[in-house]
């Protein structure tokens, strides 16, 4: 049970670490790091579920009957691209926020916004 589902345990642990950082950390860059970890755990999850016991890479060759499913890998290539784009947009925003507010700490930004109101 514990060994057989090793990948999935990793997925859950990573997911919770990432999610926790996003929620609990006030630093904008760290939040994005957390978000990336969170997304990465989902990538691992997809790739783990594609594995077929005893299956090899899906290449057409003689004597090989069982293949792993290649589709989730392809899906995850797309999701990785999306993840990178998200990280890039997030970091770009963090740079602009630093320029506009002079800080990347959530509390300080919030305090400055409250002053404006």
């Amino acid at each position: 049970m514990l060994i057989g589902l090793y990948n999935y345990w990793v997925v859950v642990v990573l997911m919770m670490i990432g999610f926790y950082i996003v929620i609990a950390n006030g630093n904008l860059i760290k939040k994005i790091v957390g978000l990336s970890i969170f997304q990465t755990s989902v990538f691992i999850f997809y790739i783990s579920m594609a594995k077929v016991d005893g299956g090899t890479a899906p290449i057409l060759a003689e004597g090989i009957k069982q293949y792993s499913n290649p589709l989730p890998h392809v899906l995850i290539l797309t999701a990785i691209v999306v993840g990178i784009a998200t990280t890039a947009v997030g970091l770009a925003l963090a740079v602009r926020i630093k320029e506009a507010y002079g800080s990347i700490e959530e509390e300080e930004i919030q305090a400055k916004d409250n002053l404006d109101c």
Binding site: L28, K31, L35, V42, G90, A100, D116
Partner: peptide, 30 residues
């Protein structure tokens, strides 16, 4: 400048939402 901060918060929340959807779709596919 608050637009930047609003956009950032939306990005965090939106990405969490989208990733949840991705997990859901993954489990359905499984």
């Amino acid at each position: 400048r608050r637009a930047l901060w609003a956009s950032y918060q939306y990005l965090i929340m939106g990405t969490i939402g989208a990733t949840f959807i991705l997990i859901g779709i993954g489990l359905m596919y499984q």
